[in-house]
Design a binder for these strands. Structure first.
Lengths: 190, 190
DNA sequence: TTTTTAAATGAATAATTATTCATTAATTTT
DNA sequence: AAAATTAATGAATAATTATTCATTTAAAAA
């Protein structure tokens, strides 16, 4: 019995991410994915029933992988600002490093490939951030606004910085990152 | 001589925007666009040479239309904060109202349809915002950071608020908008 | 009114892409 | 070492989608 090669799934994922970054979901074909992953077209269909399932599986995979990273070095017992900065930096660094994943997720959100349930599952991942913000409000450290609005603001500073890092030719050095976090913090704080 | 119907181009644009919002560029076909615009498939090819040209033309159209709106009621002689708020509100309101355009633009940016030159042309539209930020820095009203970084931060607050308005079931009322602008301003200010 | 011109149509064709499947290649089991 | 099992292959086929074109329709010019 010949066993499935676990590494192959990852090869397929990486190939797909690389292609979607350049050509979009629109322009990424199954045979291109196969070629990029250095396997035969038919092999794709051993690992995934069809394109839709491949895209959904990768979407889920991306979401789970990133969720692991978000809360690294974070503990709920930290001082609020330190905790927030830890998560903020985790998010930023991960997204900069895995820019293709960010592009892929964005593209997926408006595509017929991703099922509604797959989309909804992703909301749960942000629950700890939600309660962090609630804590900050209780401690009167940050503005008294709708929690989702506060998160929206924070997400904005991260998401756009990722694009800045990618599309401007400027370097994302320590100083720039500190400046951006300061802007985010000054915006949030009471 | 039967003349071309100018209204038809707009029908095609609107149909395309509606479809891309729901199905993404990936899932939007020429025959669907035709059906949605209530014309025959072949008619599309009278107005646009092919799909790529249609997408590029619409991309350019969206960018130009929005540029007109960005600087409405704005004058360079306004007090800095007022000028900034005017543009900020213009951007936000336009994007909320024309959410399909925002989705379309996002999708286009990673797609093989949009040519590099089309992408580059769009940068020029933001020039007045650029100089506004420079002014603010000179007047020591806002932080002394890279201008593009300041704009990035500002764009983040707008872009994410647009998504907030669209995907949360919360209303984007005056209070919410004021809160968000305050966060943006507090983040920017020196 | 007739002629001319170009837009509009949508079925037919071309091109592209997803998916299948008969065959081969690797492993494991006996 | 032979048999059994399943992964891997990639050319062939099916399905989808872009594009064309012969024909019709509508408007303008004569």
């Amino acid at each position: 019995m010949k066993p499935k090669d676990d590494k192959k799934i990852n090869q397929i994922y990486q190939a797909t991410l690389r292609l979607v970054k350049v050509k979009g979901l629109a322009g990424t074909t199954m045979s291109e994915i196969a070629r990029e992953a250095k396997i035969a077209t038919g092999t794709l269909y051993i690992y995934f029933k069809n394109k839709k399932e491949l895209i959904n599986a990768l979407f889920t995979e991306c979401r789970n992988r990133s969720a692991e990273v978000y809360f690294k070095n974070y503990s709920a017992s930290m001082p609020f600002k330190k905790g927030l900065k830890t998560i903020w930096l985790n998010l930023l660094n991960y997204r900069v490093k895995k820019f293709e994943e960010a592009v892929f997720i964005d593209q997926c959100f408006h595509s017929p490939f991703i099922t509604q349930t797959t989309k909804e599952l992703t909301k749960k991942l942000f629950a700890p951030l939600f309660s962090l913000m609630e804590t900050g409000k209780k401690q009167k450290l940050i503005k008294k606004a709708d929690t989702l609005l506060l998160l929206t603001f924070m997400a904005g500073s991260i998401n756009e910085t990722v694009k800045y890092a990618q599309y401007s030719n400027r370097k994302l050095n320590k100083q720039v990152i500190e400046q951006m976090f300061l802007m985010c913090w000054d915006g949030l704080k009471a």
